[in-house]
């Protein structure tokens, strides 16, 4: 099933299928290791609901929902 990263619930895992974000955000996502094939897991949302915390490539990454919406996952 396909899902964007911002729709992932805490504890759920997925594999990056495509990065649809554009420009600088796209590049930053790549540089931080969010590339097709990368496995990741949703940890939690911040107390006010945004940003999100995910685990990938052995570290914790925080990103906003709007940025996460540009990452398509296979779950």
């Amino acid at each position: 099933m396909e899902k964007t990263l911002d729709k992932l619930k805490p504890g759920e895992k997925g594999t990056v299928k495509r990065v649809t974000a554009e420009g600088m955000i796209r590049r930053r996502l790549f540089d931080m290791g969010v590339t097709p094939g990368a496995a990741l897991m949703m940890r939690k949302a911040a107390p006010f609901g945004d940003p999100l915390e995910i685990t990938l490539r052995g570290y914790e990454l925080s990103l906003r929902r709007i940025e996460a919406a540009g990452v398509l996952l296979e779950v």
Binding site: R28, L29, M32, P51, Y59, E60, L61, S62, E67
Partner: peptide, 9 residues
């Protein structure tokens, strides 16, 4: 600016 930030150990 994007808020892609590492949460260091």
């Amino acid at each position: 600016p994007p808020f892609l930030m590492e949460l260091p150990a």
